[in-house]
């Protein structure tokens, strides 16, 4: 597959054809590294406990049942494609808004699915996406508000056919 060659070339940042790609790659990566100290990849192969500890340290996760609406199917026939969405009740003003929404699938080998960084311009704290689930697991939505409060809700999704492989 020609794909493989391009990928290697881009990664090494070497080769004539790779140069353009490498320039394109470098810029966002370094900008991202400067933007925050979160640079080590968002999620790796780890347990959900160590992932949460890494992301939030000892900060308490409060129950967000009244604030967060996590929509996920109770039974997912195909773990390769599970539609989930998170909506948090928030005025989304500069002073009081949802800053970050984390989506975590407890039993996935890579438990952290997404970190969404929101802004007040969105008008509504809503993010939905299609995720993979390796097996029947709790899915959590963790919401960080602008004052630093962390709220969490979870929901079990039964998976008939796992979709993570790995």
């Amino acid at each position: 597959m020609t794909d493989g060659i391009t990928r290697r070339m881009v990664l090494r940042g070497a080769g004539a054809a790779g140069v353009v790609g490498a320039l394109a790659t470098r810029a966002p990566t370094s900008a991202w590294a400067q933007a925050g100290a979160q640079a080590p990849a968002l999620g790796g192969q780890e347990s959900v406990q160590s992932a949460l500890k890494r992301l939030f340290g000892a900060r308490p996760l409060k129950d967000g049942a009244g604030v967060i609406k996590l929509e996920a199917p109770p039974i997912a026939e195909n773990g390769a494609l599970v539609q989930v969405s998170v909506e948090a009740a928030s005025p989304m003003t500069a002073a009081n808004h949802v800053k970050t929404i984390y989506l975590v699938a407890d039993k996935n080998r890579i438990p952290v699915v997404t970190r969404a960084t929101l802004t007040p311009e969105m008008g509504q704290a809503f993010v939905g996406e299609t995720i993979r689930l390796g097996e029947t697991t709790d899915v959590r939505a963790i919401v960080e508000q602008s004052d630093g409060t962390l709220l969490q809700v979870r929901r079990e999704v039964k998976v008939t056919v796992g979709g993570c492989g790995g």
Partner: peptide
Amino acid sequence: LDTTQSVSENPSFTF
């Protein structure tokens, strides 16, 4: 959105 491999193939995002 910072995403990992736990996001599905041909993903869709809603906001």
